[in-house]
Structure formats: structure tokens, C-alpha cells
Simulated assay, not measured.
Amino acid sequence: MTMADTRPVQLPPERTGEANVALERVRGYLTEHKDLALVRVTVEDGSAEPLSLPREAVELLATLLAHLGAGRGVSIVPQHAELTTQQAADLLNVSRPFLIGLLKAGEIEYRTVGTHRRILAASLLDYKRQDDANRRAAADELTQLDEEAGLL
């Protein structure tokens, strides 16, 4: 397994506009060419040879540009990458001790390497999706109870 570099990339505020302009061009191209599996990109390096990229990579680029254009930092972590407990805690935006409690409770799969815990990014994302779904369900239930009680 590979260890992940989870350091986020963030644009300085004066460059977010560049990301937004690029995002609009990429989205426009993808909308106009819905049936293309490969997207041809011209690289300004002096060669006339266009670069062909898989559509999925360009769609990921659009998502990346959207976050950078909104001023948010972005990290790309392969699903098979292994994270340290600190990296996993940072991605979940929780403390490391809280994350270790989740690991001990069996909420997130992990393995040990010597005395260290390693968490697959895929396992962490599975936990996050399930936790988000549970939170939404709880919020929906509270809203329904409020409506029944006439509070909304």
C-alpha cells in the first residue's frame, strides 16, 4: 500500500478568478461534447501536438477547479492509499483521539503496521458517507417531529 500525501493545494485569493474562468471553459466543453470519451487539450509548450485526456480526468479537473475557485484547499487521495491516524483525523475534521475511538469501536477498518495504525482511504470515505447519511436521516426526523408538533 502507498502512503498518501494529503497536504491541500490552495490558490492565493488573487488567483481564484483564474480557476473560475478555466472552470467555465471546461464545463462548457464537457456540456457541448457529452459523447466524447477522450478530451483533446492544447498545451502551450510550443508543440502543435494536442494532449488527449480521459473524460473522467477532465471531470475531476472541473471539480478541482470549482473548489479552488471558491477558495477551498483541495487534496487528492487515491482510494487504495493508506493514511496515518493524523491524516485520517484531518480529513474527517476531528481530533486524533476521537478518530482512535472510532477505530477501537470498529467504526472504521484499519490495520496495524508495527505499533502504528493505517487506514485505507476507501474505508475512511465509506465511514464518512455512512455518517453523513445518518446525520441527514436524523435531521429529517427532527424536522418531521417539529412539523408534527407545529413548531415549523
Score class of each variant (00 low, 15 high):
Gln79Asp: 15
Leu51Ile: 10
Asp140Trp: 02
Ser123Lys: 02
Leu151Cys: 04
Ala48Tyr: 01
Leu61Ser: 03
Gln87Asn: 04
Glu56Leu: 03
Ala22Asp: 09
Thr143Glu: 10
Gly17Trp: 08
Gln144Asn: 08
Leu51Cys: 10
Arg111Asp: 08
Glu49Lys: 12
Leu64Phe: 02
Arg135Glu: 12
Gly71Pro: 08
Val113Glu: 15
Leu11Val: 04
Lys128Trp: 06
Leu99Phe: 11
Asn134His: 12
Gln130Leu: 11
Pro54Ile: 00
Thr42Ile: 10
Ala138Ser: 13
Pro97Asp: 09
His33Gln: 07
Lys104Val: 12
Tyr127Gln: 11
Asp146Met: 09
Thr2Pro: 15
Thr42Phe: 06
Ala139Met: 13
Lys34Glu: 14
Val9Ser: 06
Val77Gln: 01
Asp35Arg: 15
Gln86Arg: 14
Thr84Phe: 05
Tyr127Cys: 12
Glu44Ala: 12
Pro8Val: 15
Pro78Arg: 08
Ala19Asp: 01
Glu148Met: 14
Leu38Phe: 08
Arg27Val: 07
Val58Ser: 01
Leu68Pro: 02
Arg7Val: 09
Ser47Cys: 04
Leu91Met: 15
Glu49Asn: 09
Val77Pro: 07
Leu151Ser: 07
Ile108Asp: 10
Gly114Arg: 05
Ser123Ala: 15
Gln87Thr: 09
Asp146Tyr: 03
Leu30Ser: 05
Ala121Thr: 09
Val41Ala: 09
Gly106Pro: 12
Arg55Asp: 00
Asp146Asn: 09
Thr85Val: 15
Ala149Cys: 00
Glu148Trp: 05
Asp146Thr: 01
Glu32Pro: 05
Leu68Val: 01
Gln86Ala: 15
Ile119Lys: 05
Gly73Thr: 03
Glu109Trp: 14
Ser47His: 06
Asp132Ala: 09
Leu99Gly: 02
Glu147Ser: 07
Val26Ser: 00
Ser52Asp: 11
His80Trp: 06
Glu49Met: 10
Leu61Ile: 00
Ser47Leu: 06
Val21Thr: 08
Pro13Glu: 08
Val43Ser: 03
Leu124Glu: 07
Gly71Ile: 14
Ala138Arg: 15
Asp132Gly: 00
Thr84Met: 05
Pro13Ile: 14
Gly150Ala: 13
Asp131Trp: 11
Thr6His: 06
Phe98Arg: 12
Glu44His: 10
